[in-house]
């Protein structure tokens, strides 16, 4: 096995690391910045021209929306609103993370837990959980609790399901390997299953956060106008459409940026096995 060294070195030359299809946000990341700027500029231009051409009072142009946005930053109303909105979001997502990952991993590891809880999560993921938001308001009133529940209802299923699939899809060959070297069940879980599942669990967390944003906005629009929802409702009621558009665009951008940052964190954390993250 002495001369193998040179062969091995020669082989690295033509063995490229394999890249699987990159994740959703990674596809954005892969684009040169130029294309993104161009794409953004094109979108804004189409919006601006479209709005001016339509002459619809309810369809403010990009520049009007931008001014309204700057104005709301100036008077601080946007910051105040975000403060209110983030409260149920953070509480709800944290709860979903703890419970979702916990249950998901338990479902992946244990058949009995899977049998009992998986159908519930399948139903929750496929069903329009938003329909329950009015019901929740009905019972828990219009306070913080209802909004937290709304966030949890939307973000929990996807986090739990991803954690479950991540654990269930771990390579049988790796667990067999661990078994063949007399690894205990606990070593198998902590040293093989969880490390292998973590990229996909994290991807689920990212999707859960995106759902959580949806939940908190819905809650604020449906339950009682606070934070962002209040701004949207208020500006609509006084027909101040450019401000309303600005708020909506800001929350969309905020959500997308948060999710993109999570995606970047995901690739940074799991870099050596990037190809495994989906």
């Amino acid at each position: 096995m002495l001369s193998a060294n040179t062969t091995a070195q020669k082989l690295t030359g033509d063995s490229q690391p394999q890249h699987a299809a990159p994740g959703l946000m990674a596809r954005i990341g892969d684009r040169p910045v130029l294309w993104r700027v161009l794409s953004l500029a094109l979108f804004c231009a189409v919006w601006e021209v479209g709005a001016r051409a339509s002459g619809n009072f309810a369809f403010p142009s990009f520049s009007q929306t931008l001014f309204a946005f700057l104005e709301m930053i100036g008077d601080g109303s946007l910051f105040w609103a975000y403060g209110r909105t983030l409260e149920p979001l953070v509480i709800g997502v944290t709860f979903s993370l703890l419970v979702g990952i916990g249950t998901g991993v338990a479902m992946g590891l244990r058949r009995d837990v899977e049998w009992l809880t998986l159908p519930v999560f399948i139903v929750m993921q496929a069903a329009p959980m938003a329909a329950l938001i009015p019901l929740v308001t009905f019972v828990y009133g219009i306070g913080l609790a209802s909004k937290v529940v709304a966030v949890v209802m939307l973000s929990l299923p996807v986090i739990a399901m991803n954690s479950y699939k991540a654990v269930r899809n771990t390579s049988p060959s790796l667990t067999a390997m661990c078994h063949s070297f007399q690894g205990s069940r606990w070593q198998q879980i902590s040293k093989v299953i969880l490390p292998e599942a973590s990229p996909m669990i994290f991807a689920g967390v990212r999707l859960g956060v995106a759902e959580g944003f949806s939940g908190v906005v819905l809650a604020e629009l449906l339950i009682t106008p606070t934070g962002i929802g209040d701004l949207i409702t208020y500006h609509r009621s006084i027909a101040n459409f450019d401000s309303m558009y600005a708020v909506i665009v800001s929350i969309v951008v905020f959500a997308v940026v948060t999710v993109t940052l999570l995606q970047l964190l995901e690739t940074a954390l799991f870099r050596p096995d990037k190809r495994r993250s989906k």
């Binding site: 906005v217 609509r236 909506i248 959500a255």
Partner: peptide, 11 residues
Amino acid sequence: LSAPLSALVPV
């Protein structure tokens, strides 16, 4: 795909 689309419904 990852935006909170419900926020767009008022628009």
